[in-house]
């Protein structure tokens, strides 16, 4: 049985189709990422699971139960909000204890569980602080503890790392992943950052225009994008249009080519160098060929072309991925 499943779920706002006939099944215990640009329907999908939105049509099941008529407070899911949504009038302890208090647990029972939850997110001893006295990373952990203390069967995370700086974000990615493995509960994670989705999730659903464009493992999505949108959005692949790709692939479909696979110096195509930027470990060279913009990543110590120079372009056999569903 799936932890969460969508059957042709739509959510319309007037003429806008925020979520458009989405089918989805998330198995129990999976770390599932919903990836997409803003307005792609990923956050609305998450809010549909939580119960903050109701589907215009279709049905949503959580562990087999149709939750269409269930308000958020009757669903076995909990949410970590993008802005954390910590209650400003309560201290950390009462924030984390909130759900247990509503459940009617005694003060003593609450405190024992809250202490454990705070320990889990390494915030033991912070109970008396007000949310306003915490750093962004600490607030994020409180939000996490507040949701986890409810022992949800599914944890929903709405861009939980969006407000953190790079270093903290990477650290939290690791922590979230190990936490998920430890607890074994289903995580549904919304993000617009493809790196985050690819590094953390077991499977990724790429959203665009209210629909799921592709659903698969990070490797699938990264190396075998099914549409030019995914090739471009997930990992900034080069998209070769049909007329450019067909001589090499023999198929009437566009093809994706990863920037690190595009080689300069020898090959069947000619490109004009329009830009060179140093990235550290490699250098990004942008080229223009027959009206298509291509990007190549040239590793350290390899010879670089000059701006405006025309160079030959090639790739290793098998590097070109045909996008048949485009």
């Amino acid at each position: 049985m799936s932890a969460v499943s969508f059957a042709s779920v739509s959510r319309h706002y007037g003429a806008v189709r925020a979520v458009d006939r989405v089918d989805l099944a998330i198995p129990e215990g999976e770390f599932f990422a919903m990836l997409g640009p803003s307005g792609s329907g990923k956050t609305t999908s998450l809010r549909l699971i939580a119960g903050f939105e109701r589907p215009t049509s279709g049905s949503i099941r959580i562990f087999g139960e149709d939750v269409g008529a269930l308000p958020p407070y009757k669903r076995a899911v909990n949410t970590v909000f993008q802005d954390y949504a910590l209650f400003p009038h309560l201290n950390v302890l009462d924030n984390v204890a909130y759900g247990l208090m509503i459940k009617g647990l005694s003060r003593r029972a609450r405190h024992a569980q809250v202490e454990a939850a705070l320990e889990m997110v390494r915030l033991g001893g912070y109970g008396a602080r007000k949310p306003s006295e915490l750093s962004g990373g600490q607030r994020q952990r409180v939000a996490l503890a507040r949701a986890l203390v409810m022992k949800p069967r599914v944890l929903l995370l709405d861009e939980p790392l969006g407000a953190l700086d790079l270093k903290l974000r990477e650290q939290m990615q690791e922590e979230l992943k190990s936490l998920q493995r430890e607890l074994g509960i289903t995580f549904v994670f919304v993000t617009h950052d493809q790196g985050e989705a690819l590094s953390m999730a077991d499977r990724v659903a790429v959203f665009n225009d209210g629909r799921i464009m592709q659903l698969g493992t990070p490797e699938d999505v990264y190396f075998r994008p099914q549409t030019p949108f995914i090739a471009d959005f997930v990992g900034s692949s080069n998209v070769l249009p049909v007329e450019m790709a067909q001589p090499f692939t023999g198929e009437a479909h566009p093809a994706a080519l990863r920037p690190e696979h595009l080689q300069l110096g020898a090959g069947p195509l000619q490109g004009n160098v329009t830009g060179i930027s140093f990235l550290g470990q490699s250098t990004r060279v942008t080229l223009e060929t027959g009206g298509t913009r291509l990007t190549a990543l040239v590793p350290q110590h390899h010879p670089l072309p000059a701006q405006g120079e025309t160079v030959a372009l090639g790739w290793a056999p098998g590097a070109l991925h045909v996008m048949r569903s485009a």
Partner: peptide
């Protein structure tokens, strides 16, 4: 009543 208000 709360459920009803949530649904409407």
């Amino acid at each position: 009543l709360s459920d009803r208000l949530w649904r409407h």
